[in-house]
Design a binder for these strands. Structure first.
Length: 571
RNA sequence: AACCCCGUAGUGUAAUGGUAACACCAGGGAUUUUGAUUCCCUUAUUCCAGGUUCGAGUCCUGGCGGGGUUGCCA
């Protein structure tokens, strides 16, 4: 038996605590959650937080999780988004099993319930235009004034509502409104609109309806149709909760609810540094072509992150780590990057690649003896130093090599452990190279290094230890490949904090993408699209699944390695 | 301005009336054929003022600060 202590139970977030309380008090006897996207855009990392939260809650409590499309506004919604959303939710690992739901599945029930509310005197048909309604709603400090149609008889309301459904009136001519309180300090309760007329075909119901439910008169109703117990949403819906509850209470009084009443709980949405999260801005970036589409690897969309090379494990770990509260906060992008580094450090095989090549010619052995014509040494490189079971591969060292231009400095500071004139460095897995000569072109730029080579990898002939190790590829036996180096899309932590007269677009990072033609070790010619590698000392790279072709992979940099030297050098 | 929500190390979160803590970041050190990984150490925290209580980060009142809300969007 081990004497390990049992790990402390993970601290519960406030939602879990409330669920515990509901369970203990008998307000619920199980947990059923849902993720309710509107199919009018692509999912982003903020949605991932909600998906992980909702599906995670179901898993933790042995409950169920639904995917429900909140498709109540056909003017904005498209099938393209539906397909992409399902694919992304599935990729994230959330499982809705056989419960793929749509608000549009309940349109008939919503309508029947609305009729019941009309009959009970809780709703009325209003002829006010949108402008008139705004004018009579009052302000935050002043009460609104009742609509002149507020007192219509039940019979008249029923007749008008039926004719609304029948398509007798043009868009915007009439609405169905809940009769609540025009003087409520909560504006949402000032006779909110339940139905508006839109003669727009719906992607699922076609021309069946010209009447569409507003969010508030749909969401809680969808929840209760599906037996949702805990309806989790973001903070901006907090002021809607009284309305959410009001509708459910009226329906409950009329004994119409098929399931116990769900409970709405709000949490703070995710904000991340160096990016924007609003659907509107993301759409703008795509439409105005500031990025190459929704799946541009710089986008915070799930599709962008996938194309960047992020793993769903990393995103789930990130969502777990950031916690759930009601406090508005902005998470440092470092947390996301760390999560993917952590996962890829464990799983990605290592390879060598040179992003900015500098020619190196080996001229002789360190003892002065002559180098062989072809292969000097067959080097064994571990695919994963921490996991030897992942095997190794061979790279043939020849006289002509490429090394990273950054790994040589003519006038190097004392702490620079790489190559410098007269200095020595270890070529990873090969041996030690000593820089004997620096060749320059007419412009004075370094074009080649001539080095002697010692196949002993540990120390110099004089016994001095070699501190630095650099990566390299053989010049004759490497492949050229396009590599895309991505950085933050925005140069400012908070892109929305723009100067007077400027917008978030002015804060875009001009260096968010750099494309280089890199020299890759021969093994990488066989990289399959979608594979991830660590290019040693550089970062994690993802073989682009769209642009890679046979024998010619294209790599996207997912994230760099942590770089202590970079920090030191920046000082 | 009215209503609602939120204020705990730099950041993100715990502590549920009983010794303020964890992770990341930062700084320092060890190991290392990736300046990576791994390991060790260090710094620093309850917005303010009253009140209740033996005892308050926690409860109450007031202030201050931040966010949300005035779509026939969700």
């Amino acid at each position: 038996m081990s004497t390990e202590e049992t790990p402390p139970a993970a601290a519960k977030n406030f939602i879990e605590q409330q669920i515990d309380a509901d369970l203990a008090a008998g307000r619920a006897d199980h947990v059923h959650t849902r993720f309710p996207p509107e199919p009018n855009g692509y999912l982003h990392i903020g949605h991932a937080k909600s998906i992980c939260l909702n599906s995670g809650l179901a898993r933790t409590y042995g409950g169920k999780f639904n995917l429900r499309f909140d498709d109540t506004n056909p003017a904005k919604e498209e099938q393209e988004y539906v397909d992409a959303i399902m694919d992304d939710v599935r990729w994230l690992g959330a499982d809705w099993q056989d419960r793929l739901c749509h608000a549009s599945d309940y349109f008939e029930t919503y309508y029947e319930w609305a009729v019941a509310l009309v009959k009970a005197g809780h709703a009325y048909v209003c002829d006010l235009t949108a402008d008139e309604m705004r004018e009579t709603r009052g302000t935050l400090t002043e009460p609104g004034t009742p609509s002149p149609h507020r007192g219509r008889s039940v019979e008249e309301n029923l007749d008008l509502f039926a004719r609304m459904r029948a398509g007798e009136f043009p868009d915007g001519a009439k609405t169905l409104r809940a009769k609540i309180d025009m003087a409520s300090p909560n504006v949402n309760l000032r006779d909110p609109v339940m139905y508006r007329i839109k003669h727009v075909p719906h992607q699922r119901t076609g021309d069946a309806w010209c009447l569409y439910a507003a969010y508030d008169w749909a969401h809680g109703q969808g929840d209760v149709m599906e037996g949702i117990t805990h309806s989790i949403c973001t903070l901006e819906f907090e002021n809607h909760r009284p309305l959410y509850d009001w509708y459910l209470t009226r329906l409950d009084e009329l004994k119409l609810l098929p399931h116990p009443r769900p409970r709405q709980i709000e949490f703070a949405r995710l904000n991340l540094t160096y990016t924007v999260m609003s659907k509107r801005k993301l759409l703008q970036l795509v439409q105005e072509k500031h990025v190459d589409g929704w799946d541009d690897p710089r986008m915070p969309t799930i599709r962008g992150l996938r194309r960047r090379g992020y793993t769903s494990e990393a995103i789930r770990a990130f969502c777990e780590r950031i916690g759930v509260t009601k406090q508005n906060s902005t998470i440092d992008m470092l947390w996301l990057e760390d999560a993917v580094r952590e996962h890829l450090n464990e799983t990605a095989e290592r390879r060598m690649a040179v992003l900015r090549p500098l020619k190196v010619t080996l001229t002789a052995f360190a003892d002065g003896s002559e180098l062989p014509e072809g292969v000097i040494k067959v080097c064994q490189l571990d695919n994963h130093p921490q996991h030897p079971e992942q095997g190794s591969r061979e790279i043939e060292l020849t006289r002509d090599l490429w090394i990273e231009a950054d790994d040589f400095m003519e006038e190097a500071p004392k702490k620079f452990f790489r190559l410098k004139p007269g200095g020595a460095v270890r070529l990873r897995g090969a041996g030690i190279a000593k820089c004997e000569e620096v060749i320059k072109n007419a412009a004075g730029e370094v074009t080649e290094l001539r080095c002697t080579f010692d196949p002993d990898t540990t120390a110099l002939a004089d016994g001095k230890k070699v501190k630095g190790t650099i990566h390299w590829v053989p010049a004759a036996d490497c492949i050229d490949a396009e590599v895309r180096l991505y950085d933050h899309l925005f140069a400012k932590e908070d892109p929305d904090k723009a100067e007077e007269g400027k917008t978030f677009l002015d804060n875009m990072n001009p260096a968010s993408l750099e494309i280089v033609v890199a020299k890759l070790e021969p093994e990488l010619a066989d990289a399959e699209p979608g594979e991830r590698y660590q290019f040693e000392r550089l970062g994690y790279f993802f073989a682009d699944p769209i642009d890679s072709v046979d024998e010619a992979p294209v790599f996207n940099r997912t994230v760099t390695l942590r770089d202590a030297w970079g920090k030191e050098a920046a000082k």
